[in-house]
């Protein structure tokens, strides 16, 4: 487990009032933006539990949308994001739920458009966030590392092939998280790396057989 640094304690510089409910919401939006990586026709934000109950007073709705539009946590426009030109150009709505099987600060992003995608995540405290599910796959994205996300057909040798390609970039793998819907069915892999993966590396991974989704998700600026 990574220990905090002094930087974590004396920052972020952010729009208030809550690191979990405002800054965390912006970061979730930013990470969802990086994962979806396209302009959706419509986004539905589903807010759960404390996010649903206290979200308005904390500007959680504003934060989620601002992040999705690419605003950073210290952007003064967050407060009035609904009135910005960027917000007027996308179609969005908010829904509110109580579900105690979910994290107190949980949110789903439901993207509709050329690609339909549902992302689930939560603000886990002190502005730290976690995306835990992409469509039906469990993932483990905290926005702290550049991450390669793959969805592919489960079969022997894929992990070795992918890590072999990354090895050629001489980039260190910080963590690796795999999941699958069943033996021989769809599988997912999240590879967090130190440093940057080259376009060549990403192309090579995309060319592997039975890759359905290849996404290079950039880490969030702290």
């Amino acid at each position: 487990m990574r220990q905090s640094s002094i930087i974590d304690i004396i920052s972020p510089v952010m729009a208030g009032p809550s690191s979990s409910h405002t800054a965390g919401a912006v970061r979730l939006g930013l990470l969802a933006r990086n994962v979806y990586n396209a302009k959706p026709d419509k986004v539905t934000f589903k807010l759960y539990n404390s996010y649903a109950l206290t979200g308005k007073g904390h500007g959680t709705d504003k934060g989620l949308l601002a992040g999705l539009l690419g605003f950073s946590v210290d952007d003064y426009r967050i407060k009035n994001v609904f009135d910005t030109e960027q917000a007027k150009q996308i179609n969005y709505e908010f829904e509110y739920f109580e579900d105690f099987n979910r994290h107190p600060n949980a949110v789903d992003f439901v993207f509709e458009g050329g690609l339909n995608m549902t992302l689930s995540g939560a603000s886990v405290g002190a502005g730290e966030i976690l995306l835990t599910q992409i469509n039906k796959f469990s993932v483990n994205l905290d926005g702290k590392y550049n991450t390669l996300l793959l969805v592919y057909e489960d079969m022997p040798g894929v992990i070795s092939a992918v890590t072999g390609i990354i090895q050629k970039d001489n980039v260190n793998i910080a963590s690796l998280h795999c999941d699958r819907s069943g033996k021989g069915k769809d599988a997912s892999m999240c590879i967090c790396v130190d440093g940057e993966l080259s376009k060549h590396c990403l192309d090579e991974v995309s060319e592997l057989q039975h890759m359905y989704i290849v996404r290079y998700i950039k880490k969030l600026e702290s």
């Binding site: 004396i10 920052s11 952010m14 208030g16 009032p17 809550s18 800054a23």
Partner: peptide
């Protein structure tokens, strides 16, 4: 008060306690 107006503050260590340090 700036914090709860959604103004820009530095969380130190958190947003709720941002006025003390």
């Amino acid at each position: 008060e700036q914090n709860l107006r959604m103004g820009i503050i530095a969380a130190c260590p958190t947003a709720g306690s941002c006025g003390i340090v």
